[in-house]
C-alpha cells in the first residue's frame, strides 16, 4: 500500500515538473541590469536584459516603461525555477526509495 502511494506521488511530481517546465518555456529569462553612460557632460542610464541564447551572451535594451513588468516576469520565473528544484529533488528521492523496494 505504501509503495502504491509513493508511486502515485512520483507520478504527481513528474506531472507537476512537466507543467512547470512548460510554464518556464514561455517566461522571459536572464537578469536585469542598469547601465550608465556619460555623454556631452550629462549622465544617462538605461536598463538592459542580459541572457544566453544559443550559447551566446545577449544584451537587450529595455524601455523604461517595460522595466517593472519585466522585473515581475523575472521574479515569477525565479518562483517557477525554485518550484522545479523542489519537485526534481522529490522525484529523485522517490525514485531512490522505489528502486530499493524493487
Amino acid at each position: 500500500m505504501i509503495s502504491d502511494m509513493l508511486r502515485e506521488e512520483l507520478v504527481r511530481c513528474r506531472k507537476m515538473s512537466a507543467s512547470i517546465e512548460q510554464a518556464l518555456s514561455s517566461l522571459s529569462k536572464g537578469s536585469l541590469h542598469l547601465r550608465s553612460k556619460d555623454y556631452k557632460g550629462k549622465s544617462y542610464s538605461y536598463h538592459y536584459l542580459k541572457f544566453r541564447e544559443r550559447g551566446k551572451n545577449v544584451s537587450r535594451h529595455i524601455p523604461s516603461g517595460q522595466v517593472e513588468e519585466l522585473r515581475k516576469q523575472l521574479q515569477t520565473r525565479k518562483n517557477y525555477e525554485q518550484e522545479l528544484k523542489t519537485y526534481r529533488a522529490r522525484i529523485r528521492y522517490l525514485e531512490k526509495i522505489l528502486r530499493h523496494q524493487g
Binding site: R12, K15, M16, A23, N79
Partner: peptide, 25 residues
C-alpha cells in the same frame, strides 16, 4: 495565491488549474 508566492500550473491531461509552492499543490 500568486501574491504569497504560489506559481500557477496547468495539468495538460485534465486542463485543471493548480497552484504550487514549496512542493505543496
Amino acid at each position: 495565491l500568486v501574491d504569497v508566492g504560489y506559481v500557477i500550473l496547468t495539468d495538460y491531461d485534465t486542463g485543471l488549474r493548480k497552484f504550487s509552492k514549496g512542493g505543496f499543490e
